[in-house]
Amino acid sequence: MKILVDYDKCTGLGICESLAPDHFEVNDDGDLVLLEEHVSDEDIQAVEEACAGCPTEALRVER
């Protein structure tokens, strides 16, 4: 399972970072950095919540 980010939509609001901080981080320029694109079974729930929590619908998980 892999995270896909649509950087044209993302505005760095950061909700994903608060829900799945091992995978997402917003940098000093306000841009999203994908820390870890692969998602383990253990992390999938948090990552899915992060994707659902994105106000710009910029995130999804490819299974």
Partner: peptide, 15 residues
């Protein structure tokens, strides 16, 4: 304000 890199670290801490 202009602290995009910082704000969510505090959200996690509050959680």
């Amino acid at each position: 304000v202009q602290g995009q890199a910082e704000i969510m670290k505090y959200r996690v801490q509050i959680m």
